[in-house]
Write a protein that binds this DNA or RNA. Structure first.
Lengths: 143, 143
DNA sequence: TTTCTCTTTAGAACGATTCTAATTCATTGA
DNA sequence: TCAATGAATTAGAATCGTTCTAAAGAGAAA
């Protein structure tokens, strides 16, 4: 055997490339978190759920790093932050234009495909301001 | 003089009536807070700003009561809760259908009149769910 | 390697909110 | 008018999500 360094897994390489392309150093933690975050498309996570997921996957990351990473990924446009609930932040792995259903009682977010919703009649932004984005949240309750 | 009880001010009477109509006991604190909240139309407040405002007005109310009152008023449809920022809750005295501009950096909410914005193409709610409301937030940044 | 800088970390600190248990108040009926 | 009763208020502790701090660790380049 040629030393005990574990072989890089394919996912790791892809995540590392993605991070480098985004201008982020592919550290062990960031790669591991990227693997988890982007293993499927269109995921909605909070810091807490990601932390748990990492723990279950045997990845040891501090909560501080979870927060740092979520924010760095958001700045790098690998994630999008969604504000639906005063109390906790959701992060969405789908960075394309789209909107959400939100089930308040369960804290569950569901994607609405980008093309479906059309918002008309948005007034011009007040003087000195620019529209950053238009968020639509369709709030649901269970029958 | 007929005793030292202070005369009811007109605003107090109107607030008390409004509270009774909403099924809430018109206590001293609730009347005082209603006076502040509804002295003008279309206000956006957080627990903290209302607490300060009460303090400045010489009304002594605990923060716990501020929170209780805001939630009770919201349940009674005297207020509407607006979720634009994970971190703090805004309460809107305009309970009619309308949407908001939100200036992230300043934490400032601005009403968009109810009639201006039109949202089309909202998909049917998933099975077993009902649409509660559709919130549109136009996020602004200063140039 | 060594060096330099960036990253990660544990734990403290923080801000918003909720909880708790004791006190005070509003309402009702005698 | 008063006492009784249930509701509302309160201070302060507790909790929750998040950010900060300062120290230790790790990646990159020479």
């Amino acid at each position: 055997m040629r030393g005990s360094r574990p072989a890089l897994k394919q996912g790791d390489r892809r995540s590392a490339d993605r991070l480098r392309a985004a201008g982020l150093r592919p550290t062990k933690q960031r790669v591991a978190l990227a693997n988890l975050l982007f293993k499927e498309e269109d995921r909605h996570l909070t810091a807490e759920t990601l932390h748990e997921e990492a723990h279950k996957a045997g990845v040891r990351v501090s909560l501080a790093t979870i927060y740092n990473t979520l924010h760095q990924f958001t700045e790098a446009h690998l994630l999008k932050q969604v504000a639906v609930d005063a109390g906790r932040s959701y992060f969405d792995t789908n960075v394309h234009e789209h909107q959400h259903f939100y089930v308040e009682d369960e804290g569950m977010l569901i994607d609405i495909p980008g093309a479906s919703i059309e918002v008309a009649g948005v007034p011009a932004a007040p003087k000195g301001m620019t529209v950053d984005r238009v968020d639509v949240v369709v709030r649901l309750r269970r029958n």
